[in-house]
Simulated scan of single mutants.
Amino acid sequence: MDQLIEFVTNHYILSGLFAAISVALVYSIIAGQLSSVKDLGTHEATLLMNKEDAYILDIRSVAEFKKGHVLGSKQIKADLVNKADFSPLEKLKDKPIIVICAMGMTSKRTAAQMLKAGFENVVTLKGGFNAWQSANLPITK
Rank of each mutant, 00 (worst) to 15 (best):
Q33Y: 12
S35H: 05
A24P: 06
I56V: 11
A20E: 03
N50Q: 15
H43C: 08
Y27T: 08
K51P: 01
V23H: 11
Y27M: 13
S35G: 07
M49K: 12
V37A: 01
T42L: 06
A19I: 10
R60C: 13
F65D: 03
A19K: 04
T46Q: 12
T42W: 08
A31N: 13
R60Q: 14
G41E: 01
G32S: 14
A24Y: 12
K66Q: 15
L34K: 15
K38F: 02
K38D: 05
E52R: 12
V26M: 12
A31W: 11
L34C: 08
L25D: 03
A54G: 05
L25W: 07
L57A: 07
G41Y: 03
S61H: 08
A19R: 01
V37P: 05
S61W: 05
K66Y: 08
L47F: 09
I59E: 04
G32V: 11
G41K: 03
I29H: 12
F18T: 15
F65H: 11
H43S: 14
D58E: 04
K66A: 14
E44C: 02
A63Y: 13
A45M: 05
A45Y: 02
S28G: 12
V26R: 06
A63K: 11
D53S: 03
R60N: 14
V23M: 11
K66W: 04
G41M: 00
L34E: 07
Y27P: 07
A20M: 11
N50R: 14
S36W: 08
D58F: 01
K66S: 13
S22H: 04
T46D: 04
V37N: 04
L57F: 06
E52Y: 10
D58M: 01
I56D: 06
M49N: 02
Y27I: 08
V23K: 13
K38W: 02
G32C: 09
I30F: 03
T46L: 11
A63L: 09
I56F: 03
A45G: 03
K51T: 05
Y55W: 06
L40P: 01
L47D: 15
G41A: 01
